[in-house]
Amino acid sequence: MSIFINNDTKLVVQGITGRDGSFHTSQMMEYGTQVVAGVTPGKGGQTFEGPDGTMVPIFNGMDEAVAQTGANTSVVYVPPAFAANAILEAVDSGVSLVVAITEGVPVLDMARAHAFARDKCVRILGPNCPGLLSPGQSKVGILPAQIVTEGPIGVVSRSGTLTYEAVFQLTSVGLGQTTCVGIGGDPLIGTNFIDCLEAFEADPETSAVVMIGEIGGTDEQEAAEFVKAKMSKPVVGFIAGQTAPPGRQMGHAGAIISGSAGTAEEKMKAFEDNGIAVAQRPADIVGLIQDALG
């Protein structure tokens, strides 16, 4: 099992003809993801050739792509200026999950897109996220496939490479993953920690969860309360940004301590107060997971 994506995921790639879109489409197809369509306005009727010679049809719009291929998920590699429109179009097309990889989407555009998605009951992951990967089943986004393996650990994180770091360490000691989810580094993201924790709790194959947070906002604090109230499975946490100065954006648009709120310290305390084992260093994550699994 897995969360959000699996063997039945049929993917449309928005921005399939762009540099990032085409590169990652090949990578996803190589991993075995069913990429059933691409969308680039003005390039409808063309095809994208996958690494094994599979031809993926390209459409001008999401509506047509979904109607003709039965796609249920989309991934967005469209540049920031057009990304919000691409997300809105995807939400309106009938897919149930929209994974927005693009970094740099204006926050107010996303406020509108998230409101629209809530109305339509469509899940958005991201933006500014690496996507997600269910080992052995499907990969949607840019997570490196070489570092994952099938197993019982759920991984959810706001960061990209820090997630890879944790996943790589888990894999190297033989602890595989059900699904690795990057929820994104922006202030307004669609799927949050709680959504992922809830799904991991419900997934029978997942036996423990690694949650990697960072400074900014209160998503981790709310997730910690959720863990205490609603989860039976053990959760190990890590927070990046203990040395980040207040008021400065640390790479991710959402990684900023505003006033005195959103510090690593308060998040780590919330974890500890709610029964989440806190890794002081990334290297401690594996040991804590092993302890939790007994």
């Binding site: 994180s157 706001r158 960061s159 990209g160 490479t161 820090l162 997630t163 890879y164 770091e165 580094g185 990697i212 960072e214 400074i215 890590f238 990046a240 940004g241 203990q242 040395t243 980040a244 640390m250 790479g251 991710h252 990684a255 690593a264 002081q280 260093r281 990334p282």
Partner: peptide
């Protein structure tokens, strides 16, 4: 000098550690 914002923050934290 790090690739990725999260890893960059974690690296700074480890320097302090």
């Amino acid at each position: 000098c790090v690739n990725g914002a999260g890893l960059a923050m974690a690296t700074m934290d480890l320097v302090k550690y």
